[in-house]
Amino acid sequence: MVSTNYVLILSATLFIIGVAGVLTRRNALVIYMAVELMLNAANLAFVAFASAFGALDGQIAVFFVMTVAAAEVAVGLAILVTIFHTRQSVDIDSLHQLKG
C-alpha cells in the first residue's frame, strides 16, 4: 500500500482547496460546499490514521463528523433559505451590516 504521507498530503490539498473556496467565493451555497469539502478532507485523514495505527477510533470519529455535518447542513441551508427570502440573494457580501 501507499505511504500514509501520500494520503495525508491528499487530505491537506483537499482541505486547502476548501479553504480557498470559503475565502474567495461569494455564493453562500458554494461556501457551504467548500466547508463540506474541508470536513471530508479531515475525514480522510482520520481514516488514514485509523488504518495506520490499526485502531477503529478514527473511523468512529468520522462517523460522528458525518452526523454533525448532516445537522450543520440542515440548519445552515434553512438559514440560507430564510436569508434568501428576505434579501433575494445568496451573495454573502451583501450581509455586512455587523461592522464597526
Binding site: M1, V2, S3, T4, N5, V7, L8, I9, A12, T13, I16, A48, S51, A52, G54
Partner: peptide
C-alpha cells in the same frame, strides 16, 4: 503542508 509531510514527518511508514 506538503513540505511538512514530505520532508519532516516520515515515521508513519506504509499503510498496512
Amino acid at each position: 503542508v506538503v513540505y511538512a509531510f514530505a520532508a519532516r514527518v516520515g515515521g508513519l511508514g506504509k499503510l498496512t
